[in-house]
């Protein structure tokens, strides 16, 4: 498709969403060339997701392998989602990384690495969704108290459990649960306006 690819700041080719859609559909038909192309174009984003959630490089590399094995096996599931193609891939990587995080017996976070990751500049939001949707979610988060909005963002990005959030905020687990649930209900009410 002419004109649909652009070069980003780092000189990488960026792919228009419909092209990633095509690649995912071809992967669902077990097209290995499409799988290679999909990996080239999306693995940096998904590795960023695994690394942020797991805060541990060897584990994030292992998780990324499992994520692409899942994508190969379950690409047909994309068709039943309303998500944009890159958001669907991010959801697969995020959910898998959070599952791995929960399976750990105790935290193995490498603090230095976690700081490095946090300092990396985020992608432009346009990579993930149309700017209108970004604006709407941001507006709705702004209607929450600052600490509640921060808890929602933090939980989403890092995959923190209720227990971890409760410890960090120094409140009982059930209080944390009530807090976040109220925030989610407010968020839903705002998003549906």
């Amino acid at each position: 498709m002419p004109g649909s690819n652009t070069i980003d700041d780092c000189g990488r080719m960026q792919t228009a969403p419909q092209d990633i859609t095509k690649l995912i559909i071809r992967v669902s038909m077990k097209d290995r060339a499409a799988f290679d192309a999909l990996y080239r174009q999306t693995s940096a984003k998904l590795f960023g997701v695994c690394l942020r959630v797991l805060s541990n490089r060897p584990e994030a590399e292992e998780a990324l392998q499992e994520v692409y094995v899942k994508i190969w096996n379950k690409a047909d599931r994309f068709a039943i989602s309303d998500l944009s193609p890159i958001s669907w891939l991010v959801a697969v990587a995020r959910n898998h990384s959070i599952d791995r995080l929960r399976q750990r017996r105790r935290p193995t976070a490498d603090i230095d690495e976690a700081v490095d990751i946090a300092d990396t500049a985020p992608d432009p939001e346009s990579l993930v969704v149309a700017s209108g949707e970004v604006g709407q979610l941001n507006n709705c988060l702004q209607e929450l108290d600052d600490d509640r909005a921060a808890a929602v963002r933090g939980a989403y990005l890092a995959g923190d459990s209720y227990a971890e959030l409760a410890e960090r905020h120094g409140v009982p687990l059930n209080t944390m649960r009530t807090w976040l649930r109220r925030s989610l209900l407010k968020l839903r009410e705002c998003l549906e306006r």
Partner: peptide, 25 residues
Amino acid sequence: VDNWEVSLAPLAGAYASIEPPAHVK
């Protein structure tokens, strides 16, 4: 679940892109 994934997807813009090492592929 899918509706919530769509609603919260903009938050994922904050994930940085980090090139994985070649041995992963």
